[in-house]
Design a protein around this nucleic acid. Structure first.
Lengths: 385, 385
DNA sequence: GTTCAAGTCTTAATCGATTAAGGATCGATA
DNA sequence: TATCGATCCTTAATCGATTAAGACTTGAAC
């Protein structure tokens, strides 16, 4: 690819002095100001906005007009929220930093789903900052003006989760089956992982390696021994690990001999590094089970660098079915997850909860094994055609 | 690509009856309840949370303990917000539906930038629903509990923008140079468009077609005549159109003879449809100027379907430099925009505004022409190597 | 000429907190 | 012992709205 670049414009900045503080005279008008101007009470003005049937159409028109001329933009959201006991927004709690969430296609799809549900209900979507899990971040969750939370893929003992639960607001969890009493939306991680592992077993593979997502929130990468596997607190990682294990043990393999490389981050880069370490080992694996497509894409790269041909010398399977998976070389065999639907469903349940309606407490969405070109029998010249 | 699929798990739902309404006895505790329990005043409890130096450490500990046992999660965000006059969140106003925003890589990158700035300031990010521009949507903007807005790529006369401006909150606009007095972050659309058009002119092209983004918010697709071009109210489309025009006229071409196909949506599909219509015309163009990469990708597809080889028979250039651009076949020549930086800068300016600090009122970020494989001299066998 | 309902606006309590200013206590200093 | 400054807590006003219940007016029905 012949790429030439030319800078067109450079940064230009026009400075402006800080604005002067608004004096008492030009402060923003309130309900009362409108009321005073018209010689009516605040209640009437409030009604003009919230219950038009409670006052004569003419007066209402006058109220709205006066509001316009005085520059009143309607009832203060915070005051209204306080009085009505509703914030008009749904909060989203995510295990990682916000800035990371937007880079992860899976998280983006999930957010799109939640946003759709929120939008349909006329609610805003408040993304709560947080990740380093300092007191400051917990406060952000405690101080978020929301009516409920959608919590996504957090460890059971995450302090951010506790902070949210303490608020006793309606909560829906995503990808966090089990423990909490809150309604939850998820896939069957165990079955899905088992299926993709069985696929490889069925192709004849006997030597495996696992590229794992984080097991606990302590950001560690490296080989995860059995005690660390036991300690896994991210339900997703825990479930997928168990599925892999069930499939391999059912095939008569010893799980203890399967190296599990934990990646501190769900990125191609980390996946590559981890895969390289797995490939370096004595009797290298013929198949890699990656807990995400990002990790699997990294594994493909590691294979290439090691001079291996996928899938002839090495099979690689992922999980998630992100858009890039189909376009990879070779296209990635993976488990398709309905990310957008997960978010949508979670959002809908939360909205129902807020409305006091009936709602399903546990939703398990379907997944599909998608066999593409990155998996084949060991030593085969290509995928079965 | 040999894809086989197998459904692993199907939907499963476990219903739960609606929760009973919380009675008066088990209502959530307030500051006062904690205060009463300890025999102190509400002010003291408030201080325990907000100004630890204002009370003895022992009492503070007791307050926090009592709060825990009584299930008090800290001061109510709304009440606190009302009293302090701060919502603790930044609002984002987007021209399209939220659900669409998450599907557009450009919008996602921008959001990532804003989120980063918000996160650094400990502020939440409130995505405000809105798009069909019904009264309901305007209300969403009016009722959003935020301290300020980042407004992204909206038409000057958009009622949603007016609704936001009426609130008299700090506002930063992105990709909306000109009109409003608010600080703004943008690129130089005119210069960038001129440059990419000059690139094609320089390669020897004389017959052009333009794939335009929406010109006004009325969702129309079709050929845009000169009066409609005049009426363009989206600053981005307006600027790029002008840049194209300047470059072509400078080359001695008549702008009136350049067909401008407007696309109702920034999607590959719309781009393909529009490009097909341009290619059907009498003396087909040898080069297509697309205002976005999504449209350009559609144009590539249209070219393929028409049996044309890009860039031999047809040159196509985009705008944005989304990730898919580099991976397209052939790789897309385009204008690189710093999307993430735009969001970051806008967020930072808004944060500064809120803090009453100095801030730049106009920031123009640099762009770069990136020449890849989709542009070449007309009739050439390939891009220059 | 009552009575009544409908329509229109007001009264007054309330949502849950924050904060400047003031009062009480206490040991230390002169 | 009177004075002073800290330390610790309370008083009371305030943020900007919502809403159930009540009061007043008016015209119609009996």
């Amino acid at each position: 690819m012949n790429v030439s670049e030319a800078i067109i414009s450079s940064v230009s900045v026009k400075p402006t002095p800080a604005r002067r503080r608004a004096g008492p005279s030009d402060r923003r008008p309130t309900l009362k100001d409108i009321a005073a101007e018209l010689g009516v009470t605040a209640a009437t003005v409030s009604n003009a906005y919230n219950r038009p049937d409670q006052l004569s159409p003419e007066l209402r028109t006058r109220v709205l007009e006066t509001a316009r001329t005085l520059g009143y933009a309607g009832p203060d959201p915070m005051a209204r929220g306080l009085r009505r006991g509703r914030a008009g927004a749904i909060g989203v709690l995510y295990a990682d930093r916000l800035s990371y969430a937007f880079k992860d296609p899976v998280a983006v799809a999930l957010l799109a789903g939640i946003a759709t549900a929120a939008e349909a209900a006329g609610l805003g979507l408040l993304l709560v900052p947080g990740s380093p899990r300092e007191e400051r971040d917990l406060d952000a969750a405690r101080r978020a003006a929301v009516d409920g939370f959608v919590v996504y893929s957090m460890a059971q003992e995450d302090p951010l989760l506790s902070a949210a639960l303490e608020r006793r607001l309606p909560i829906v969890t995503v990808d966090m089956p089990g423990r909490s009493a809150a309604p939850s939306v998820a896939i069957d991680d165990v079955a899905s992982a088992r299926t993709v592992a069985e696929h490889l077993v069925g192709l004849g593979h006997r030597r495996f390696g696992v590229l794992s997502l984080e097991l606990t929130p302590d950001v560690r990468s490296g080989l995860a021994d059995s005690s660390r596997q036991q300690a896994a607190s991210y339900p997703v990682s825990r479930g997928r690990l168990r599925g892999y294990r069930e499939a391999l043990e059912a095939a008569g393999l010893s799980w203890d001999e399967v190296p599990v490389q934990e990646c501190a981050e769900n990125s191609v880069e980390e996946g590559r590094a981890a895969a390289e370490r797995l490939l370096e080992r004595g009797s290298g694996p013929t198949a890699l089970l990656a807990m995400s497509d990002a990790l699997a894409l990294g594994a493909l790269e590691a294979g290439r660098r090691a001079g291996l041909t996928v899938p002839k010398d090495l099979s690689v399977v992922g999980f998630d079915d992100i858009p890039e998976a189909a376009g990879a070389t070779p296209p990635l065999t993976t488990v398709h997850e309905p990310h957008l639907e997960k978010g949508l469903k979670a959002g809908e349940i939360l909205v129902a909860l807020l409305a006091g309606e009936e709602f399903p407490s546990v939703v398990t969405l379907p997944t599909r094994l998608i066999v593409r070109g990155s998996s084949a029998p060991p030593g085969a010249s290509g995928p079965p055609r």
